[in-house]
Design a protein around this nucleic acid. Structure first.
Lengths: 134, 134
DNA sequence: CTGGATCCAAATAGATACTG
DNA sequence: CAGTATCTATTTGGATCCAG
Protein backbone atom coordinates (compact mmCIF):
# COMPACT_ATOMS: atom_id res chain seq x y z
CA UNK A 1 0.00 0.00 0.00
CA UNK A 2 1.09 3.48 0.91
CA UNK A 3 1.42 4.57 -2.66
CA UNK A 4 0.03 1.51 -4.35
CA UNK A 5 -2.24 4.11 -5.86
CA UNK A 6 -5.88 3.80 -5.06
CA UNK A 7 -6.42 0.51 -3.29
CA UNK A 8 -7.57 1.97 -0.02
CA UNK A 9 -10.89 1.30 1.63
CA UNK A 10 -13.41 4.10 1.37
CA UNK A 11 -16.15 5.52 3.54
CA UNK A 12 -18.81 7.43 1.71
CA UNK A 13 -16.47 8.17 -1.17
CA UNK A 14 -13.69 9.27 1.16
CA UNK A 15 -10.45 7.35 0.75
CA UNK A 16 -9.04 6.00 4.01
CA UNK A 17 -5.32 6.12 3.49
CA UNK A 18 -3.56 6.44 6.83
CA UNK A 19 -0.47 7.81 5.13
CA UNK A 20 -2.40 10.79 3.81
CA UNK A 21 -2.36 13.91 5.89
CA UNK A 22 -5.96 14.52 6.82
CA UNK A 23 -7.13 10.92 6.97
CA UNK A 24 -9.64 10.25 9.76
CA UNK A 25 -8.09 6.86 10.54
CA UNK A 26 -5.00 8.73 11.63
CA UNK A 27 -6.94 10.62 14.23
CA UNK A 28 -8.42 7.38 15.47
CA UNK A 29 -5.00 5.80 15.78
CA UNK A 30 -3.75 8.92 17.53
CA UNK A 31 -6.50 8.66 20.08
CA UNK A 32 -5.81 5.02 20.74
CA UNK A 33 -2.18 5.85 21.11
CA UNK A 34 -2.49 8.12 24.09
CA UNK A 35 -1.13 6.98 27.40
CA UNK A 36 -4.37 6.15 29.16
CA UNK A 37 -6.93 4.97 26.62
CA UNK A 38 -5.44 1.51 26.36
CA UNK A 39 -5.42 1.08 30.11
CA UNK A 40 -8.95 2.35 30.57
CA UNK A 41 -10.29 0.02 27.89
CA UNK A 42 -8.39 -2.83 29.48
CA UNK A 43 -9.73 -2.12 32.93
CA UNK A 44 -13.32 -1.69 31.76
CA UNK A 45 -12.99 -4.83 29.69
CA UNK A 46 -13.00 -6.85 32.85
CA UNK A 47 -16.02 -5.24 34.37
CA UNK A 48 -18.00 -2.06 34.82
CA UNK A 49 -16.19 0.37 37.08
CA UNK A 50 -16.98 3.55 38.85
CA UNK A 51 -14.75 6.56 38.53
CA UNK A 52 -12.86 6.20 41.77
CA UNK A 53 -12.25 2.53 41.15
CA UNK A 54 -10.67 3.27 37.79
CA UNK A 55 -8.53 5.94 39.35
CA UNK A 56 -7.27 3.46 41.90
CA UNK A 57 -6.65 0.64 39.49
CA UNK A 58 -4.86 2.66 36.86
CA UNK A 59 -1.86 3.69 38.82
CA UNK A 60 -0.54 7.16 38.16
CA UNK A 61 -3.47 8.60 36.23
CA UNK A 62 -4.55 12.02 37.42
CA UNK A 63 -8.16 12.88 37.91
CA UNK A 64 -7.99 15.30 35.06
CA UNK A 65 -6.56 12.80 32.60
CA UNK A 66 -8.97 10.08 33.62
CA UNK A 67 -11.94 12.37 33.19
CA UNK A 68 -10.64 13.58 29.87
CA UNK A 69 -9.97 10.08 28.58
CA UNK A 70 -13.40 8.88 29.64
CA UNK A 71 -15.09 11.85 27.97
CA UNK A 72 -13.33 11.18 24.71
CA UNK A 73 -14.17 7.51 24.83
CA UNK A 74 -17.76 8.36 25.62
CA UNK A 75 -17.88 10.84 22.80
CA UNK A 76 -16.59 8.22 20.39
CA UNK A 77 -19.19 5.72 21.51
CA UNK A 78 -16.71 3.31 23.05
CA UNK A 79 -17.70 3.81 26.65
CA UNK A 80 -21.04 4.33 28.37
CA UNK A 81 -21.43 6.61 31.34
CA UNK A 82 -24.25 6.03 33.79
CA UNK A 83 -24.80 8.36 36.72
CA UNK A 84 -26.85 7.40 39.75
CA UNK A 85 -28.28 10.45 41.50
CA UNK A 86 -27.40 9.25 44.95
CA UNK A 87 -25.51 10.93 47.72
CA UNK A 88 -22.66 10.59 47.44
CA UNK A 89 -22.83 10.56 43.67
CA UNK A 90 -22.03 7.32 41.90
CA UNK A 91 -21.01 7.07 38.25
CA UNK A 92 -20.36 3.82 36.47
CA UNK A 93 -18.50 3.34 33.23
CA UNK A 94 -18.66 0.36 30.94
CA UNK A 95 -17.61 -0.57 27.45
CA UNK A 96 -20.02 -0.40 24.57
CA UNK A 97 -20.00 -3.14 21.98
CA UNK A 98 -17.63 -1.11 19.86
CA UNK A 99 -15.37 -0.50 22.83
CA UNK A 100 -15.34 -4.17 23.60
CA UNK A 101 -14.36 -4.99 20.04
CA UNK A 102 -11.22 -2.96 20.56
CA UNK A 103 -10.02 -5.23 23.33
CA UNK A 104 -8.80 -7.93 21.00
CA UNK A 105 -6.44 -5.74 18.99
CA UNK A 106 -5.18 -4.02 22.11
CA UNK A 107 -4.62 -7.32 23.84
CA UNK A 108 -2.58 -8.46 20.87
CA UNK A 109 -0.43 -5.37 21.20
CA UNK A 110 0.01 -5.87 24.90
CA UNK A 111 0.97 -9.48 24.26
CA UNK A 112 3.50 -8.33 21.71
CA UNK A 113 5.02 -5.94 24.22
CA UNK A 114 5.39 -8.65 26.80
CA UNK A 115 6.87 -11.08 24.33
CA UNK A 116 9.40 -8.62 22.95
CA UNK A 117 10.25 -6.62 26.02
CA UNK A 118 13.34 -8.66 26.77
CA UNK A 119 14.68 -8.29 23.25
CA UNK A 120 13.98 -4.59 23.20
CA UNK A 121 15.78 -4.00 26.45
CA UNK A 122 18.79 -5.93 25.17
CA UNK A 123 18.75 -3.96 21.95
CA UNK A 124 18.74 -0.72 23.88
CA UNK A 125 21.65 -1.81 26.01
CA UNK A 126 23.62 -2.84 22.92
CA UNK A 127 22.78 0.44 21.20
CA UNK A 128 23.97 2.45 24.15
CA UNK A 129 27.19 0.46 24.32
CA UNK A 130 27.90 1.17 20.68
CA UNK A 131 27.23 4.85 21.29
CA UNK A 132 29.76 4.76 24.10
CA UNK A 133 32.43 3.33 21.78
CA UNK A 134 32.67 5.93 19.09
CA UNK B 1 -6.28 -8.83 35.48
CA UNK B 2 -5.50 -5.38 36.75
CA UNK B 3 -5.84 -6.29 40.38
CA UNK B 4 -6.52 -9.99 40.01
CA UNK B 5 -3.58 -10.16 42.33
CA UNK B 6 -0.44 -11.65 40.98
CA UNK B 7 -1.26 -13.31 37.67
CA UNK B 8 0.94 -11.17 35.52
CA UNK B 9 3.68 -12.43 33.27
CA UNK B 10 7.18 -11.90 34.55
CA UNK B 11 10.55 -11.16 33.05
CA UNK B 12 13.47 -12.15 35.19
CA UNK B 13 11.41 -11.93 38.33
CA UNK B 14 9.93 -8.56 37.37
CA UNK B 15 6.15 -8.48 37.22
CA UNK B 16 4.78 -7.02 34.00
CA UNK B 17 1.59 -5.33 35.06
CA UNK B 18 0.76 -2.50 32.65
CA UNK B 19 -1.46 -0.88 35.24
CA UNK B 20 1.45 -0.42 37.61
CA UNK B 21 3.26 2.86 37.43
CA UNK B 22 6.79 1.95 36.42
CA UNK B 23 6.03 -1.08 34.27
CA UNK B 24 8.26 -1.39 31.19
CA UNK B 25 5.39 -2.59 29.03
CA UNK B 26 3.84 0.82 29.51
CA UNK B 27 6.82 2.50 27.99
CA UNK B 28 6.68 0.10 25.07
CA UNK B 29 3.02 0.85 24.51
CA UNK B 30 3.76 4.55 24.80
CA UNK B 31 6.36 4.29 22.09
CA UNK B 32 4.07 2.41 19.78
CA UNK B 33 1.40 4.94 20.42
CA UNK B 34 3.19 7.92 19.00
CA UNK B 35 1.94 9.49 15.83
CA UNK B 36 4.58 8.19 13.43
CA UNK B 37 5.82 4.82 14.60
CA UNK B 38 2.79 2.99 13.28
CA UNK B 39 3.13 4.61 9.88
CA UNK B 40 6.87 3.99 9.63
CA UNK B 41 6.46 0.33 10.50
CA UNK B 42 3.66 0.07 7.99
CA UNK B 43 5.69 1.66 5.23
CA UNK B 44 8.80 -0.39 5.91
CA UNK B 45 6.66 -3.49 6.11
CA UNK B 46 6.14 -3.33 2.40
CA UNK B 47 9.75 -2.91 1.49
CA UNK B 48 13.08 -1.42 2.41
CA UNK B 49 13.04 2.34 2.02
CA UNK B 50 15.54 5.12 2.03
CA UNK B 51 15.06 8.16 4.16
CA UNK B 52 13.72 10.49 1.53
CA UNK B 53 11.31 7.87 0.26
CA UNK B 54 9.84 7.46 3.72
CA UNK B 55 9.54 11.19 4.07
CA UNK B 56 7.62 11.37 0.83
CA UNK B 57 5.34 8.45 1.55
CA UNK B 58 4.40 9.45 5.07
CA UNK B 59 2.65 12.65 4.37
CA UNK B 60 3.10 15.41 6.88
CA UNK B 61 6.02 13.99 8.82
CA UNK B 62 8.78 16.49 9.40
CA UNK B 63 12.38 15.52 8.82
CA UNK B 64 13.04 15.88 12.50
CA UNK B 65 10.23 13.60 13.56
CA UNK B 66 11.10 11.00 10.96
CA UNK B 67 14.71 10.93 12.06
CA UNK B 68 13.73 10.72 15.69
CA UNK B 69 11.23 7.92 15.09
CA UNK B 70 13.74 5.94 13.07
CA UNK B 71 16.42 6.35 15.76
CA UNK B 72 14.10 5.07 18.45
CA UNK B 73 13.03 2.12 16.34
CA UNK B 74 16.64 1.36 15.57
CA UNK B 75 17.57 1.63 19.22
CA UNK B 76 14.81 -0.82 20.11
CA UNK B 77 15.99 -3.28 17.50
CA UNK B 78 12.90 -2.99 15.33
CA UNK B 79 14.52 -1.28 12.39
CA UNK B 80 17.89 -1.67 10.71
CA UNK B 81 19.78 1.28 9.30
CA UNK B 82 22.26 0.72 6.51
CA UNK B 83 24.29 3.61 5.13
CA UNK B 84 26.04 3.47 1.74
CA UNK B 85 28.99 5.84 1.60
CA UNK B 86 28.18 7.12 -1.84
CA UNK B 87 27.75 10.60 -3.11
CA UNK B 88 25.07 11.62 -2.66
CA UNK B 89 24.67 9.65 0.53
CA UNK B 90 22.16 6.81 0.55
CA UNK B 91 20.65 5.32 3.70
CA UNK B 92 18.23 2.44 3.67
CA UNK B 93 15.92 1.37 6.46
CA UNK B 94 14.28 -2.00 6.84
CA UNK B 95 12.40 -3.92 9.50
CA UNK B 96 14.15 -6.46 11.67
CA UNK B 97 12.41 -9.71 12.45
CA UNK B 98 11.07 -8.18 15.67
CA UNK B 99 9.86 -5.14 13.78
CA UNK B 100 8.14 -7.33 11.26
CA UNK B 101 6.38 -9.23 14.02
CA UNK B 102 4.75 -5.99 15.06
CA UNK B 103 3.03 -5.56 11.74
CA UNK B 104 0.28 -8.05 12.52
CA UNK B 105 -0.94 -6.38 15.71
CA UNK B 106 -0.70 -2.94 14.12
CA UNK B 107 -2.56 -4.09 11.06
CA UNK B 108 -5.31 -5.39 13.29
CA UNK B 109 -5.56 -2.00 14.91
CA UNK B 110 -5.64 -0.22 11.58
CA UNK B 111 -8.33 -2.61 10.42
CA UNK B 112 -10.32 -1.87 13.53
CA UNK B 113 -10.07 1.86 12.86
CA UNK B 114 -11.33 1.44 9.35
CA UNK B 115 -14.17 -0.80 10.42
CA UNK B 116 -15.34 1.47 13.22
CA UNK B 117 -14.64 4.87 11.76
CA UNK B 118 -18.20 5.31 10.55
CA UNK B 119 -19.68 4.46 13.92
CA UNK B 120 -17.27 6.71 15.73
CA UNK B 121 -18.04 9.67 13.54
CA UNK B 122 -21.75 9.13 14.08
CA UNK B 123 -21.24 8.85 17.81
CA UNK B 124 -19.35 12.13 17.81
CA UNK B 125 -22.07 13.87 15.88
CA UNK B 126 -24.71 12.53 18.25
CA UNK B 127 -22.66 13.57 21.26
CA UNK B 128 -22.24 17.07 19.94
CA UNK B 129 -25.96 17.33 19.23
CA UNK B 130 -26.76 16.37 22.79
CA UNK B 131 -24.30 18.97 24.03
CA UNK B 132 -26.10 21.55 21.93
CA UNK B 133 -29.44 20.70 23.53
CA UNK B 134 -28.80 21.30 27.16
C1' DC C 1 -17.88 11.06 45.07
C1' DT C 2 -17.43 13.03 40.59
C1' DG C 3 -15.87 16.23 38.09
C1' DG C 4 -15.34 21.35 36.01
C1' DA C 5 -12.07 25.36 35.81
C1' DT C 6 -7.66 27.42 36.14
C1' DC C 7 -2.83 28.09 36.37
C1' DC C 8 1.66 26.66 35.42
C1' DA C 9 5.64 23.48 34.29
C1' DA C 10 7.32 20.28 31.06
C1' DA C 11 7.37 17.68 27.01
C1' DT C 12 6.69 17.84 22.01
C1' DA C 13 6.52 19.19 17.39
C1' DG C 14 7.40 22.37 13.48
C1' DA C 15 10.34 25.67 11.00
C1' DT C 16 14.73 27.08 9.83
C1' DA C 17 19.56 27.13 9.09
C1' DC C 18 23.64 24.56 8.64
C1' DT C 19 26.98 20.28 7.77
C1' DG C 20 29.40 15.82 5.97
C1' DC D 1 20.95 13.08 0.41
C1' DA D 2 20.61 12.52 5.21
C1' DG D 3 20.85 14.28 8.82
C1' DT D 4 22.16 17.76 13.35
C1' DA D 5 21.32 21.97 16.03
C1' DT D 6 18.55 25.48 17.57
C1' DC D 7 14.65 28.31 18.48
C1' DT D 8 9.95 28.76 19.13
C1' DA D 9 4.93 27.64 19.10
C1' DT D 10 1.82 24.38 20.67
C1' DT D 11 0.30 20.66 23.36
C1' DT D 12 0.14 18.19 27.30
C1' DG D 13 -0.07 17.06 31.99
C1' DG D 14 -0.10 17.74 36.99
C1' DA D 15 -1.61 20.47 41.00
C1' DT D 16 -5.02 23.01 43.10
C1' DC D 17 -9.36 24.93 44.21
C1' DC D 18 -14.17 24.80 43.83
C1' DA D 19 -19.13 22.87 43.13
C1' DG D 20 -23.29 19.69 42.44
Amino acid sequence: MVSDSGEWPTLGGMVLNPYAKGCPTRRILDRIGDRWTVLVIGALGERTCRFSELARRIEGVSQKMLTQTLRELERDGLVTRRAYPEVPLRVEYSLTEAGDSLRGPLKALEQWSITHLGGIMEARAAYNDRAGDE
